[in-house]
Amino acid sequence: NRRVIAMPSVRKYAREKGVDIRLVQGTGKNGRVLKEDIDAFLAGGAKP
């Protein structure tokens, strides 16, 4: 169970979209999950 780095607003956005943030690959600094990562996940998967 890895620790997810994300701003509270991004965590809320993921919850609102029904996304398990632990499944999203973060592309920000130090692997931080960004809102754009949530959108990319919803569009068909995590960014490479």
Rank of each mutant, 00 (worst) to 15 (best):
N1F: 03
N1Y: 01
N1T: 03
R2Q: 13
R2S: 08
R2P: 02
R2K: 14
R3V: 12
R3K: 04
R3D: 10
R3I: 08
R3H: 02
R3C: 04
V4Q: 08
V4K: 12
I5C: 14
I5Y: 02
I5T: 13
I5L: 07
I5Q: 01
A6S: 13
A6M: 06
A6H: 08
A6C: 07
M7W: 06
M7H: 11
M7N: 05
M7K: 02
P8T: 11
P8E: 15
P8M: 11
P8C: 06
S9I: 14
S9G: 14
S9L: 13
V10A: 07
V10M: 04
R11Q: 14
R11D: 06
R11V: 15
K12Q: 15
K12R: 11
K12H: 14
K12Y: 02
Y13Q: 05
Y13D: 06
Y13F: 15
Y13I: 06
Y13H: 12
A14E: 02
A14W: 01
R15C: 10
R15D: 10
E16S: 06
E16N: 10
E16F: 04
K17P: 00
K17G: 08
G18E: 15
G18Q: 11
V19E: 00
V19A: 12
V19M: 05
V19R: 00
D20C: 08
I21C: 03
I21T: 13
I21L: 13
R22A: 14
R22M: 14
R22Q: 14
L23Q: 09
L23K: 08
V24A: 07
V24W: 03
V24C: 08
V24K: 00
V24T: 04
Q25C: 10
Q25E: 12
G26S: 09
G26T: 05
G26N: 02
G26M: 02
T27I: 01
T27D: 03
T27Y: 00
G28N: 01
G28S: 05
K29I: 03
K29P: 07
K29Q: 10
K29W: 02
N30P: 01
G31Y: 15
G31W: 04
R32G: 11
R32S: 12
R32H: 08
R32W: 15
V33P: 02
L34Q: 15
L34Y: 04
K35D: 03
K35A: 09
K35L: 07
K35C: 07
E36W: 05
E36Q: 07
E36V: 08
E36L: 06
D37S: 01
D37K: 00
D37P: 00
D37M: 00
I38K: 00
I38E: 01
D39T: 08
D39G: 06
D39R: 02
A40W: 11
A40V: 07
A40Y: 11
A40L: 13
A40D: 13
A40F: 12
F41N: 08
F41E: 10
L42E: 07
A43E: 09
A43V: 13
A43G: 14
A43F: 07
A43R: 10
G44T: 11
G44W: 08
G44L: 13
G44C: 02
G44V: 11
G44K: 03
G45M: 12
A46V: 11
A46L: 11
A46S: 10
A46Y: 06
K47G: 10
K47F: 04
K47I: 07
P48S: 06
